[in-house]
Lab assay of single mutants.
Amino acid sequence: EEEEKKKEEIARLLGVSKEDVERILKKNNLDIEQLLRRVQREN
């Protein structure tokens, strides 16, 4: 699934687990696209 791939990509870029990414998304109330763009910009 596309969303899972995005979570895995974010996890890889941040050096965290996919579960961490899911927690970040919930905690910050971000959607996956916003987080992915933010992470890609910083790297």
Score class of each variant (00 low, 15 high):
1 E>K: 12
1 E>I: 12
1 E>T: 13
1 E>C: 09
1 E>N: 13
1 E>S: 14
1 E>Q: 11
1 E>P: 12
1 E>D: 13
2 E>A: 11
2 E>F: 07
2 E>I: 10
2 E>K: 08
2 E>P: 08
2 E>H: 09
2 E>Q: 10
2 E>G: 11
2 E>C: 10
3 E>A: 13
3 E>V: 14
3 E>R: 14
3 E>G: 09
3 E>K: 10
3 E>L: 14
4 E>A: 09
4 E>V: 07
4 E>F: 05
4 E>D: 12
4 E>R: 07
4 E>N: 09
4 E>C: 08
4 E>Q: 07
4 E>S: 07
4 E>L: 08
4 E>P: 02
4 E>H: 06
5 K>P: 04
5 K>D: 09
5 K>A: 14
5 K>Q: 11
5 K>T: 09
5 K>R: 14
5 K>M: 12
5 K>S: 10
5 K>L: 12
5 K>Y: 09
5 K>N: 10
6 K>Y: 08
6 K>G: 05
6 K>N: 06
6 K>M: 15
6 K>S: 06
6 K>V: 11
7 K>L: 11
7 K>D: 01
7 K>C: 06
7 K>N: 01
7 K>H: 03
7 K>E: 02
7 K>M: 11
7 K>R: 06
8 E>S: 10
8 E>A: 13
8 E>N: 10
8 E>R: 11
8 E>K: 10
8 E>G: 09
8 E>P: 00
8 E>H: 11
8 E>Y: 12
8 E>W: 13
8 E>F: 12
9 E>W: 15
9 E>N: 06
9 E>Y: 15
9 E>D: 06
9 E>I: 15
9 E>L: 15
9 E>M: 15
9 E>K: 10
9 E>R: 09
10 I>G: 01
10 I>V: 14
10 I>Q: 00
10 I>L: 09
10 I>K: 00
10 I>W: 02
10 I>T: 04
10 I>D: 00
10 I>F: 03
10 I>R: 00
10 I>A: 09
11 A>F: 01
11 A>P: 00
11 A>N: 00
11 A>R: 04
11 A>M: 08
11 A>W: 01
11 A>E: 01
11 A>L: 01
11 A>H: 01
11 A>Q: 03
12 R>D: 03
12 R>P: 00
12 R>H: 06
12 R>Y: 07
12 R>V: 05
12 R>L: 07
12 R>M: 08
12 R>A: 07
12 R>K: 09
12 R>N: 06
12 R>W: 07
13 L>K: 04
13 L>C: 05
13 L>S: 03
13 L>Q: 03
13 L>N: 02
13 L>R: 06
14 L>H: 00
14 L>N: 00
14 L>F: 02
14 L>R: 01
14 L>E: 00
14 L>Q: 00
14 L>M: 11
14 L>P: 00
15 G>M: 05
15 G>Q: 06
15 G>C: 08
15 G>W: 03
15 G>A: 04
15 G>N: 08
15 G>K: 07
15 G>F: 03
15 G>L: 03
15 G>R: 08
15 G>P: 00
16 V>E: 01
16 V>K: 05
16 V>Y: 04
16 V>G: 02
16 V>N: 02
16 V>L: 10
17 S>K: 09
17 S>I: 03
17 S>T: 14
17 S>M: 05
17 S>A: 07
17 S>Y: 03
17 S>G: 06
18 K>M: 10
18 K>S: 05
18 K>L: 11
18 K>Q: 05
18 K>Y: 06
18 K>I: 12
18 K>G: 03
18 K>C: 08
18 K>P: 07
18 K>W: 05
19 E>Y: 09
19 E>R: 11
19 E>C: 11
19 E>H: 09
19 E>I: 10
19 E>P: 05
19 E>F: 09
19 E>Q: 13
19 E>L: 11
19 E>N: 09
20 D>K: 08
20 D>A: 13
20 D>E: 15
20 D>N: 06
20 D>V: 15
20 D>Q: 13
20 D>W: 14
20 D>P: 00
20 D>R: 09
21 V>G: 00
21 V>Q: 00
21 V>P: 00
21 V>K: 00
21 V>L: 05
21 V>F: 02
21 V>E: 00
21 V>C: 02
22 E>G: 04
22 E>W: 03
22 E>F: 02
22 E>H: 04
22 E>M: 08
22 E>D: 12
22 E>L: 06
22 E>A: 07
22 E>K: 03
22 E>P: 02
22 E>T: 08
22 E>I: 07
23 R>W: 12
23 R>F: 10
23 R>L: 13
23 R>M: 13
23 R>E: 11
23 R>H: 10
23 R>G: 07
23 R>S: 10
23 R>Y: 12
24 I>L: 12
24 I>Y: 12
24 I>E: 03
24 I>Q: 03
24 I>G: 01
24 I>T: 03
24 I>P: 00
25 L>D: 00
25 L>W: 01
25 L>K: 01
25 L>N: 00
25 L>A: 07
25 L>I: 08
25 L>T: 02
25 L>Y: 02
25 L>Q: 02
25 L>R: 02
25 L>P: 00
25 L>G: 01
26 K>H: 09
26 K>T: 10
26 K>D: 07
26 K>A: 13
26 K>W: 08
26 K>L: 14
26 K>N: 07
26 K>E: 11
26 K>I: 13
27 K>V: 14
27 K>G: 07
27 K>D: 14
27 K>M: 14
27 K>N: 13
27 K>Q: 13
27 K>C: 13
28 N>Q: 12
28 N>I: 10
28 N>K: 09
28 N>G: 11
28 N>F: 15
28 N>M: 15
28 N>T: 15
28 N>Y: 15
28 N>D: 13
28 N>R: 10
28 N>C: 15
29 N>Q: 08
29 N>D: 08
29 N>I: 04
29 N>M: 07
29 N>S: 08
29 N>W: 04
29 N>F: 07
29 N>G: 13
29 N>K: 11
29 N>C: 09
29 N>A: 07
30 L>T: 05
30 L>Y: 09
30 L>E: 12
30 L>I: 12
30 L>N: 05
30 L>A: 04
30 L>G: 05
30 L>M: 13
30 L>Q: 05
31 D>N: 13
31 D>T: 15
31 D>V: 04
31 D>C: 08
31 D>M: 05
31 D>Y: 03
32 I>G: 02
32 I>C: 08
32 I>A: 14
32 I>R: 01
32 I>D: 01
32 I>S: 06
32 I>E: 03
33 E>G: 05
33 E>R: 04
33 E>N: 13
33 E>C: 12
33 E>I: 04
33 E>H: 09
33 E>K: 04
33 E>A: 05
33 E>L: 05
33 E>D: 15
33 E>Q: 05
34 Q>A: 13
34 Q>N: 07
34 Q>T: 15
34 Q>K: 07
34 Q>F: 06
34 Q>G: 10
34 Q>L: 06
34 Q>W: 09
34 Q>D: 13
34 Q>M: 08
34 Q>E: 15
35 L>K: 00
35 L>R: 00
35 L>E: 01
35 L>V: 03
35 L>H: 01
35 L>N: 00
35 L>P: 00
35 L>I: 03
35 L>A: 02
35 L>Y: 03
35 L>S: 00
35 L>T: 02
35 L>D: 00
36 L>V: 02
36 L>S: 02
36 L>C: 04
36 L>P: 00
36 L>D: 01
36 L>E: 03
36 L>G: 01
36 L>M: 06
36 L>K: 02
36 L>F: 06
36 L>N: 01
37 R>W: 04
37 R>E: 15
37 R>L: 13
37 R>F: 04
37 R>D: 14
37 R>S: 08
37 R>V: 08
37 R>P: 01
37 R>K: 13
37 R>H: 11
38 R>F: 15
38 R>N: 10
38 R>I: 15
38 R>V: 13
38 R>D: 15
38 R>S: 10
38 R>W: 15
38 R>Q: 15
38 R>C: 08
39 V>R: 02
39 V>C: 14
39 V>G: 02
39 V>D: 01
39 V>I: 14
39 V>P: 02
39 V>Y: 04
39 V>Q: 02
39 V>F: 04
39 V>T: 05
40 Q>D: 04
40 Q>N: 07
40 Q>G: 05
40 Q>R: 14
40 Q>W: 04
40 Q>C: 12
40 Q>M: 11
40 Q>S: 08
40 Q>H: 08
40 Q>K: 10
41 R>H: 11
41 R>L: 13
41 R>G: 13
41 R>D: 13
41 R>E: 14
41 R>Y: 08
41 R>M: 14
41 R>T: 11
41 R>W: 07
42 E>A: 10
42 E>P: 08
42 E>V: 09
42 E>S: 09
42 E>R: 08
42 E>C: 15
42 E>N: 11
42 E>Y: 06
42 E>M: 08
42 E>K: 07
43 N>I: 15
43 N>Q: 14
43 N>L: 15
43 N>G: 11
43 N>K: 11
43 N>W: 08
43 N>E: 11
43 N>A: 14
43 N>Y: 12
43 N>D: 09
